[in-house]
């Protein structure tokens, strides 16, 4: 693992593998909860790194970190969120073409996948969900939409995301959910936080998101 300096009080930790990021992040949270982490202001996981800010002595922390024994992630130590989804997005046919299959099969495979929130960014409560195999990775749209509706379920690169609010966006839209991804008045403002397991549960199109099929 590399530990790169970020200003006087930050460290960018770069595990050797992408899987190592989730394990490191989980270990950092465990240690933070048990008082085994020096005070920090931010712990920000991302695609290949975890950024720590607000460290009093980043060098000493990096030295201590090198001695840590970080266990691999297990499926059971993560919370699970189920999102009801109607697979009727405007880019579903295009994604089906890219996957070399039918729209129904895109929905079936997507709903059969267990995702994890690798990190958040872009907007408050927007999670980058990993889990799709490489052959299902799709490019962004060549022309971004000026407005993507709230709750849109979308694909780009290795990620699935759900738009927590209406915004411009270039991801391929395959469906929609009525789950509230972001509500600052709620105790946990973001429904999807880094490390969370996510399943998409198809619901009946006719009755919208009321009935689970």
């Amino acid at each position: 693992m590399r530990a790169l300096p970020v200003g006087a009080h930050g460290l960018l930790l770069e595990p050797d593998t992408a899987d190592g990021v989730g394990a490191l992040h989980a270990e950092l949270l465990r240690r933070a909860a048990s008082g085994g982490l020096p005070p920090v202001t931010e712990i920000v996981p991302a695609a290949r790194t975890v950024f720590l800010d607000g460290l009093d002595d980043p060098r000493a922390f990096a030295a201590a970190l090198a001695t840590w024994d970080i266990p691999p992630l297990t499926a059971t130590d993560r919370p699970t969120v189920e999102l009801p989804v109607v697979y009727d997005g405007p880019d579903l046919a295009e994604v089906a073409a890219l996957w070399g299959t039918t729209a129904d099969e895109v929905a079936r495979r997507h709903a059969a996948t267990t995702f994890h929130v690798a990190f958040c960014g872009f907007a408050p409560g927007f999670g980058y969900l990993t889990g799709l195999p490489e052959e299902c990775h799709v490019p962004r749209r060549t022309t971004p939409r000026t407005r993507v509706p709230v709750g849109a379920v979308a694909l780009a690169g290795p990620y699935t995301g759900v738009y927590p609010r209406s915004s411009p966006g270039g991801w391929q839209l395959i469906g929609r959910t009525d789950a509230v991804l972001w509500d600052p008045a709620r105790e946990n403002a973001a429904l999807l936080t880094p490390g969370t397991r996510v399943r998409f549960v198809p619901v009946d199109r006719a009755r919208d998101t009321e009935t689970v099929r």
């Binding site: 800010d53 960014g121 408050p124 409560g125 403002a189 973001a190």
Partner: peptide, 8 residues
């Protein structure tokens, strides 16, 4: 501060 991991 403290919410960067949620994209805030």
């Amino acid at each position: 501060p403290g919410h960067a991991h949620l994209g805030v």
